[in-house]
């Protein structure tokens, strides 16, 4: 009946490739849309005329756009994003140095958002229309509305400046991770909580749940053994989509907390007009987002037997 899972996975992976190609094309074209000499733009304002000339030949900037793109794509695939216009280090090295910090922050925040969001959402649904439900929804409303950088500053003022419990910024000890991770997780936690609550409420209204209740099963037993598994399916997708917002939020969070990750590097690259670095980070971020969504799509199939993978 069902086609083999392996083939479905392969098809989904192949489907993500055009999107990744499109991402590189969009970034390539965007940088060439900037008015001015692309050689000068890519080399940076500090580069000497000879450097610019060398780059022009190296990148084939006098050649047709299609040829330039093919060259660009070939080097991106081999991990060569060119040299930073400011530090003259390979962009891939710059990215590599900061990748760990960003991943640490993003993974911790996502884990936090899933744990707190799902628990809060389950509580809200289990105690639907009670003070518990309203409180969770109120906090969630705050979570989707609060500017992430402001939340970070407020947490710093309270926990670092006022109470001296945690460091105000920087990286090093686990204590340094607490405030940035909480800040970055706020929005995703709220979204996951809303989605879990909505989805669980919907599931609790379905026939099989009513049957289980009618059999005499307790509320929590029904939720844990029957409803939750079904209710969490759409939540998985939302977590994947949230990852995009999380990456955007990471740019702001890292800047607020002087967290030495990719987001902060991106901001300083934009300020310094360091286009090779901008190009590289944007492509990496978009690729991470595409891959995370691919993984959640596959997870979705793994946990929901009803999905037909055509």
């Amino acid at each position: 009946m069902r086609p083999p899972l392996g083939r479905y996975i392969l098809r989904r992976v192949l489907y993500a490739l055009p999107t990744l190609l499109g991402v590189t094309l969009a970034v390539f074209l965007l940088v060439r849309l900037i008015p001015g000499d692309p050689g000068r733009i890519i080399a940076g304002l500090l580069a000497s005329d000879e450097d610019v000339q060398r780059l022009r030949i190296e990148l084939g900037l006098d050649r047709p756009l299609t040829e330039q793109y093919v060259r660009f794509l070939a080097s991106v695939i081999s991990g060569d994003f060119g040299l930073s216009a400011v530090t003259r280090t390979p962009v891939i090295v710059e990215i590599g140095i900061r990748m760990r910090a960003t991943m640490m922050l993003a993974v911790t925040s996502t884990a936090l958002a899933v744990a707190a969001g799902v628990s809060a959402g389950v509580l809200a649904a289990a105690y639907h229309n009670t003070a518990v439900d309203y409180s969770v929804m109120m906090v969630a409303l705050g979570g989707v509305s609060v500017p992430v950088f402001w939340l970070g500053i407020m947490l710093m003022l309270l926990f670092a400046v006022h109470l001296h419990w945690l460091p105000a910024g920087g990286i090093g000890t686990p204590a340094h991770l607490v405030l940035p991770a909480l800040t970055l997780a706020a929005f995703s936690t709220a979204i996951v909580a809303r989605m879990t609550r909505g989805s669980l409420l919907e599931t609790l209204g379905l026939d099989f749940v009513r049957t289980a209740r009618a059999k005499g099963m307790g509320k929590w037993a029904v939720i844990i053994h029957h409803a939750l598994r079904n209710a969490l399916i759409p939540v998985v997708t939302v977590i994947g989509l949230q990852f995009g917002t999380l990456l955007g939020g990471a740019v702001l969070t890292e800047t607020t907390f002087a967290w030495p990750g990719l987001g902060r590097l991106l901001v300083s690259a934009i300020t310094a007009r360091d286009y090779p670095v901008i190009q590289g980070i944007v492509i990496i971020f978009a690729a991470m987002f595409v891959v995370v969504n691919l993984v959640t799509d596959l997870l979705y199939v793994a946990i929901d037997p009803r999905i037909r993978y055509e």
């Binding site: 999107t19 990744l20 499109g22 991402v23 969009a26 970034v27 965007l30 990852f243 995009g244 917002t245 999380l246 990456l247 955007g248 939020g249 740019v251 702001l252 991106l266 690259a269 934009i270 007009r273 286009y275 901008i278 944007v282 971020f285 978009a286 987002f289 595409v290």
Partner: peptide, 13 residues
């Protein structure tokens, strides 16, 4: 495929 804030940021760049 570009997270929203990142798209805005790239365009600003």
């Amino acid at each position: 495929a570009f997270p929203g804030f990142l798209l805005a940021l790239t365009l600003i760049a």
